[in-house]
Amino acid sequence: MSADSYKLRSRLRGLTDSLVTVLAILATLVVVAPLAAIFGYLIYKGASSLNLAFFMQIPRPEGEVGGGMANAIVGSGVLLGLASLIGIPLGIGGGIFLAEFGRGTKLANAVRFTADVLNGVPSIVMGLAIYSLIVSVHSPLIPFSGHFSAFSGGVALGIMMIPTVCRTTEEMLLMVPKAVREAALGLGVPNWRSVVSITLKTASPGVITGCMLAFARVAGETAPLLFTALGNVYMSANLNDPIDALPLRIYVYAISPYDDQHRLAWGGALVLIALIVLAVSLVRYVTSRGVLKGAS
C-alpha cells in the first residue's frame, strides 16, 4: 500500500467518524424536537384553557362555550383509586412470592414470564376482555356486571398495573442484603413478619417507585376505558354507573368538531401530563438518591 493511499484511507476514516458523530447528534435533535414541540404546544394551549371553571364545572351541552372537566377529574380519581386497590396488593404479593418464596423454581419463572406477557397485552385488548368478562355478562357472581360501570374500568386499569408493580417489587426485594433477612430470622421473628416489616420495609422506596410508575402509566390509559367505564358527562362517583376519566374526555373532545371542546381537551391534556410528569420526576428523584439508602 502506498503512502498516499494510506493517507487517503485515514482521511476517509476520520471523515466517516465525524459524519457519524454529526448523524448521531442529528438523531438526538430529531428525537428531542417532537418532545419539545409536544410540551411547548401543550403548555401553550393548555395553560390558556385552564381556569377555575375547568376544575369546578362539568361539561356543557355540545356547541355551548364554557364548562369544565370536574367530572372527569373525579372519575379519574375513582378509577385510579380502585385500580390501585386491585393492582398494588396483587402486584406486591406476586413480587414477594417471586423474591421470597419462589426463587429459582419453575413456578416463579412461569409467573415472571406471564407477568411480562400481561405487560405486553395491548390496552385495547384489555378493554375488550373486561367488557366480555364483566360488562357483557349478567351474573350475580360478578359485581356490577351486565352494564358499563366505573367498576369494570377500575378492574381493567388495576390489572394493567399488576405486572409493573410485581416486577419492580421483586427486583427491589432482591436488592435487600441477605444479612438483613438473617438478622430478623435470628431474632425469632416469624417469617411473614420479617418479610413485611423488615424486607419489604427496607425495599419500600423502590417498591413505591414501581407503584408510581404503574400508576402514571394507567393514569393516561384511554383504550381500556372505552368499553368499560364508557364516559359520562355528568358528575358521578358511583362504581355501578358509567364514569368519566380525563383521557376519555380528552379523546372525545379532540375528535369533536367544536373549538371550545378542543380548548378543553388541551386543558385536560395539560392536567394529565402534569400529573404524570410529577410522578415520573418523583420516581427519578427517589431512584437517583439510591433506592436503598444505607442498606448495603
Binding site: P177, A179, V180, E182, A183, A184, G186, L187, G188, V189, P190, R193, S194, S197, I198, K201, T202, S204, L292, K293, G294, A295
Partner: peptide, 26 residues
Amino acid sequence: GMVFQRPNPFPTMSIYDNVAAGLKLN
C-alpha cells in the same frame, strides 16, 4: 440469640427500634 459476622442493623430503623425489634416484631 445470634450475632453475625458482619454488623447487620436494620437499615430503615432508628437505634431504638433496632434494639426493640425482636420484641416489637413479636
